[in-house]
Amino acid sequence: MTQTVWARVDDYLVRTLVVDADSEAARAANAAAGLPAIDVSATQGKLLNLLARTARARRVLEIGTLGGYSTLWLARAVGPKGQVITLEFQPHHAEVARANLDRAGVGDRVQIRVGAALESLPVLAEEGPEPFDLVFIDADKVNNANYVRWALRLTRPGAVIIVDNVVRDGGVADADSQDPAVRASREVIELFATEFAADATVIQTVGDKGWDGFVYAVVDGDPVE
Results as ranks from 00 to 15, higher is better:
R103E: 13
L47W: 09
R76G: 07
Q90I: 15
A31I: 15
A125Y: 07
Q44M: 10
D108F: 00
D133E: 11
R58K: 12
R58W: 00
L101G: 09
R76W: 10
L48K: 08
T54A: 15
P131W: 01
L121F: 04
S23K: 05
R27T: 14
L50Q: 13
V106E: 03
L134S: 05
L74E: 12
A21N: 07
A116D: 08
P80L: 00
F89H: 11
Y69F: 15
L134T: 09
A32N: 08
A52M: 05
L101S: 10
L61C: 12
R109M: 01
A32K: 13
P122V: 09
A33H: 04
V60T: 09
Q44I: 01
K46A: 09
V96P: 00
V106N: 07
A26K: 01
N100I: 10
E130T: 10
E95I: 06
N100Q: 04
S41E: 07
Q44V: 00
R59A: 15
R59N: 10
E62C: 05
G79M: 08
L50A: 14
I38Q: 15
G68I: 13
V40C: 08
E119V: 07
R53A: 14
H93Y: 10
A28S: 15
K81L: 01
I85C: 03
I38F: 12
E24T: 14
E130N: 11
G79D: 07
R59C: 09
L66T: 12
L35Q: 09
E24L: 11
F89Q: 05
V96K: 00
D108T: 09
A37F: 01
L72M: 14
V60H: 06
V106A: 09
L61Y: 02
L51D: 06
G45R: 03
P36M: 03
A52V: 03
T86V: 06
E119C: 02
L61I: 11
A26W: 03
A75Q: 11
F89N: 02
Q83E: 13
D133M: 12
L134H: 07
Y69G: 06
A117M: 12
A37V: 12
A57E: 05
H93Q: 08
A32D: 15
H93A: 12
H92T: 14
G45Y: 02
P91V: 06
V110Q: 08
L47Y: 07
E127W: 02
K81G: 05
E88C: 09
T65H: 02
S120F: 00
A116G: 02
I85R: 08
L51Q: 05
L66C: 11
G107I: 01
E127P: 00
T54S: 14
R58I: 02
L50E: 15
I38R: 08
L66M: 14
I63R: 04
W73L: 03
I38W: 15
S120N: 14
G107F: 00
V106P: 05
R56I: 06
A28R: 15
